[in-house]
Design a protein around this nucleic acid. Structure first.
Lengths: 135, 135
DNA sequence: CTCCGTGCAAACGATTTGCACTATG
DNA sequence: CATAGTGCAAATCGTTTGCACGGAG
């Protein structure tokens, strides 16, 4: 079950990397299609899954919405915009947050944690100001 | 747009409360159906949405899975089991975690955060031990 | 030449919606 | 009695899967 570096896999990986964004499968599909028009959405899904399993990209499951994929597989937290759903990387925010002690409270064995900071991104703040002043 | 306290709404609320669990819509539907067999799943979805908007229950969007609803609408964090997907409440875990400072890093205006502790619940730990010893 | 990977379409699970009917306030 | 809420079925959205074919190693 070794990984083959197919053309589509290479392009998917490259497009995600050069985007420097946290794309959802369909957004990445749109980008990849411009380079390889006959690629299928299923292939994009399959490869994103495989690549994240292989630790070459990160998988983000945020806020009940679509999954997003991170060009940076290293461990870090995220901040996301409630208006446009854009996601950005954050330095690890859990200094002093020892997950273990919470497990003890309820008898869980703790394996990790997931932290999302929620807010409005700079772009959406600007748009909103415009909207306000139009009123 | 005032809220009417219909029979179905009352029962949904009551069943969620007495369950003392973090139920998904279909799980709650199953419980409610025992009391009111002709209720529809759509009604359950609609009311869970409305009740959480009204602040009478909490809505949980965890890890790309189904939404779950919390009988306790007060602000608190959650811990959940990767094996059975059960969710439990946790005292606020963010002492010393000032979300605001992260917003500053990337220009976001921060409105909140979401923290999930991930682990294995006591029940699933026990089951797993059994499985291990059978080998 | 062996399988892993692909494209396509169909299936899927969770959730939402249009509609005509019902019942709360 | 006005209009928020309901039940039903169909629609929608994101994602996965079965299958026959194609291409990497």
């Amino acid at each position: 079950m070794q990984l083959r570096m197919t053309n589509q896999r290479e392009i998917i990986l490259r497009e995600l990397n050069t985007s420097q964004r946290h794309l959802a499968a369909d957004e990445l599909y749109d980008r990849v299609k411009k380079v390889m028009p006959r690629i299928s959405l299923a292939t994009v899904y399959r490869n994103l899954e495989i690549l994240s399993e292989a630790g070459m990209i990160g998988k983000l499951e945020i806020s009940g919405r679509q999954k997003r994929f991170d060009y940076d597989p290293s461990e870090h937290d995220h901040i996301y915009c409630v208006v446009c759903h854009r996601v950005d990387n954050l330095e690890m925010a859990h200094k002093g947050l020892t997950a273990e002690e919470f497990g003890a409270v309820v008898g869980y064995s703790v394996t990790g944690y997931r932290l999302e900071i929620i807010g409005v991104c700079p772009e959406c703040q600007t748009k909103n100001e415009n909207k306000e002043s139009k009123k």
